[in-house]
């Protein structure tokens, strides 16, 4: 199983001389496994993925969307397999009380916000609301659960027979918990991440930024590290970099917090990097 970062930035695509190392595209990962391709989120990073050789020979895609904030869906209309009648695209996203997944996405993928309507896409589109009891592709099992973030937001755990990784890009894991972490049972996202090989987790803020941004739905470096340690994760990738943070700032924050992890290896998620499981 190979994971590849196509977009690691949070909130807003950010391209300048200060974001060349860790990248400026918003959330998108690919998971390659035995000829299958799963795509996690459709931020602007899905555009370079769609342009890559990776998608050329594949006809069935699975796009798992954690939530409907714009930085996680803004690249959707640029996913070229949508315009290929030989392709089938399964789109999974969080259930809503008010509207079907299809209708929510149509709000963005229709005029005046987007020039092309979903109904004009050529591919066979299938929409699936999550969570549901279990989800399997040919070779992988996928678990989805709601996590703490404004509006219905999913985290995903993807596993083959022996290894698993967890993707929780937007997660305010310590909301309302002054002495984080409390018990595992009462920690958002614990069951998804427990014991996984790799955790890709929200780390948008530095510690001193958090008081002013409490309730905005994101975690700090130290909270992400504490969560990974609680979940006994082997490797943590800090993800959803703040658009205001330069490459140097990210490295400075990592250097300051890295030693807080005792059993987990901590890295910065970097656009273009691959992770091969087993690590």
């Amino acid at each position: 199983m190979r994971l590849r970062f196509w977009g690691t930035r949070g909130s807003l695509p950010t391209f300048n001389s200060d974001t060349q190392v860790y990248g400026g595209n918003t959330s998108c990962l690919s998971v390659e496994n035995e000829g299958e391709l799963i795509i996690l989120d459709a931020g602007s990073g899905i555009k370079p993925l769609a342009d890559s050789e990776l998608v050329k020979s594949i006809r069935e895609f699975h796009i798992l969307i954690t939530h409907m904030h714009f930085d996680h869906i803004q690249g959707l209309g640029f996913f070229t397999p949508f315009f290929n009648s030989e392709c089938r695209v399964n789109i999974y996203g969080p259930a809503s009380n008010s509207e079907e997944l299809f209708k929510i996405l149509t709000k963005y993928l229709s005029p005046p916000l987007f020039p092309v309507r979903i109904r004009d896409f050529k591919a066979d589109l299938q929409f699936h609301a999550l969570p549901r009891r279990s989800l399997r592709t040919s070779h992988l099992s996928i678990n989805a659960s709601f996590v703490c973030h404004p509006g219905p937001t999913l985290g995903f755990r993807i596993s083959d027979d022996t290894h698993s990784f967890c993707y929780i890009p937007d997660h305010e894991v310590a909301l309302g918990v002054p002495a984080f972490p409390k018990s595992a049972e009462w920690t958002s996202g614990y069951e998804l991440a427990a014991g996984c090989d790799v955790l890709i987790h929200d780390a948008q803020y530095d510690t001193e930024q958090y008081p002013a941004k409490t309730g905005w739905g994101h975690s700090t470096y130290d909270q992400a590290i504490k969560f990974a340690e609680l979940c006994k994760v082997r490797q943590l990738y800090l993800f959803h970099h703040d658009p205001m943070h330069s490459d140097l700032k990210l490295e400075e924050m990592l250097a300051r917090h890295k030693d807080e992890a005792r059993n987990t290896t901590v890295s910065l998620a970097r656009e273009g990097d691959c992770i091969d499981l087993p690590v």
Partner: peptide
């Protein structure tokens, strides 16, 4: 160990 649903946690 399993964890509680997010609605209960919140």
């Amino acid at each position: 160990m399993s964890s509680q649903d997010i609605e209960l946690i919140l």
